Measured scan of single mutants.
Amino acid sequence: MTEYKLVVVGAGGVGKSALTIQLIQNHFVDEYDPTIEDSYRKQVVIDGETCLLDILDTAGQEEYSAMRDQYMRTGEGFLCVFAINNTKSFEDIHHYREQIKRVKDSEDVPMVLVGNKCDLPSRTVDTKQAQDLARSYGIPFIETSAKTRQGVDDAFYTLVREIRKHKEKMSKDGKKKKKKSKTKCVIM
């Protein structure tokens, strides 16, 4: 069974824990209790493949930012979460993405942009803004509501699919490099 290491990042209060708990335990946590770091595991079937999701729910508070490099190193894919009623959390996505790329030393890291709290009427981040940002990053965008469960499975499952595509691409690139290195030079 394939294991996928997913990391949920975003500013404090955007609903990272609520999304994760909704996926794992099928219930909505409405009281806000700032996370330092929590880890969850769940076995699911995605596109006919049974897999184990190892999900790291991270601290959004700035005082825990020193811990970010460590979990970013171990993560295979990242859910970059903002709240649709919090423009600052949307603007912060850029910083999370840049930090992930720096730590992973790669421009090509599996990510999904997630606009959470889409059940709320007080939207300050337009869907088109988020779609445009995701398009500019070359990553999928999904709106979710941890409260109603809308888009929750889709967000995590899409990230797994992005990781699969990335692994497939990397193995193809690896095979191309191996083929090239088999060419021999004969000096007579």
Score class of each variant (00 low, 15 high):
C51Y: 13
K5C: 05
S39M: 11
E62F: 09
Y40S: 04
K16D: 00
G60P: 05
D33C: 11
R41K: 10
V45A: 10
D30I: 10
T50M: 05
K16R: 04
D30T: 11
T35D: 00
L19W: 04
E49F: 07
T20C: 13
L52F: 11
D47L: 04
Y40H: 10
L19V: 14
Y64N: 15
V9P: 02
D38H: 04
V29K: 15
K42T: 07
E37A: 02
A18E: 01
V9F: 14
I55R: 02
Y32F: 04
E31G: 06
T58C: 12
A18F: 00
Y32Q: 01
V7Y: 12
I55E: 01
Y4R: 11
T2A: 12
F28Q: 01
G12V: 06
R41T: 09
K5L: 03
D30L: 09
K16V: 01
F28D: 01
I46N: 09
I21C: 11
C51P: 08
T20G: 15
D38P: 00
I36Y: 03
V44D: 05
V14N: 10
Y32E: 03
F28Y: 10
G13I: 14
Q25T: 13
K42R: 13
V44E: 03
G15A: 02
L23N: 15
L23D: 07
L56N: 04
L23W: 14
G13V: 13
I36K: 00
V29I: 12
T50N: 06
G12W: 05
Y32L: 04
T35M: 01
D38R: 01
Y64M: 15
E62Q: 10
L19I: 12
R41S: 07
V14A: 13
F28W: 09
R41Y: 06
D57F: 01
I21G: 12
D33R: 05
L52N: 09
E37N: 00
I36C: 03
V7A: 09
D47A: 08
H27S: 11
V29S: 11
K42P: 02
Q22R: 07
L53S: 07
S39I: 11
T50H: 06
D47I: 02
T2P: 08
D57P: 00
S39K: 02
T50W: 03
S17A: 00
V9E: 03
T58N: 04
T2F: 10
L6A: 05
V8I: 12
C51D: 10
